[in-house]
Amino acid sequence: MSIRFENVTKSFLDRKVLSDLSFSTRDGEILYIIGKSGVGKSVTLKHAVGLIKPDSGRIFVGSHEVTSLNREELMPVRRLCGMIFQQTALFDSMNIFDNIAYGLRSTGLDSDALAARVSEVLSLVQLDSGVLDKLPCDLSFGMQKRVSLARTIAPSPAYLLFDEPTTGLDPIITNAIGSLITGLSRQLGTTSIVVSHDMESALSTADRIMLLDNGGIAALGTPGEIRQSTNPLVMEFLAEINDTPEAGTSRTPCIWRQDEQSYREYRRAIHHDDPLDIEEVDK
């Protein structure tokens, strides 16, 4: 069960965004797609669920060829793919319960089973049931991201697609969301594609990293291979991490990003500040 792109090309007006792009995910892996703004990272992700049609090439989700399906035929394929959007995309006229339950209503679950599933996924994203009656606008952006994650995993998709999941979040919430992505992907056994420009997160959580540039793949490999890469663009991205003024001090070491408790201990030891409670920050 993989997502496979075969020679996909896409242009918007006279601008070619994807040029003969081919890659395939491995079963159960977390693949990070990294690149500068405007290189087509989100466009790649939207192609996978058929939100954008390629000019040429083929895209497969499992055994389904997405590019040959019409709108109605795409619906069951889309249910296999859970997509988390950059802006959370929560339905602002619905409360949190209805948002999370949205994708479950077509599955024929009775109201008790539906409520149980909503509670279950809410606990997976570490939110309490007090938020269920609230509207999205009543929550912080970090909490909205978690609700968005809960809504996406509720129908148990086989693939998780994250579009810039940590954009606009502070480092602590970024850390928490990064941990959630890893934890959920491993726990649910899903194949995940994460679009990001955050190389640091990618190095700490990805199984493989794909660097996009000029509509094609500039580099593809495991975090270890990427670290060793001599590709100028990869080196530029790696240099961005190392050159940051905060490097080595307040910047979160990659290995700790996977472990909130370690990160909190690190903060206590280095900065002598109070434990950084993620929930408190959220509120």
């Binding site: 619906m75 889309r78 859970g82 997509m83 995309a89 129908p155």
Partner: peptide
């Protein structure tokens, strides 16, 4: 788009 991705 989110609605479409949820199969609606």
């Amino acid at each position: 788009d989110a609605m479409e991705c949820l199969g609606a």
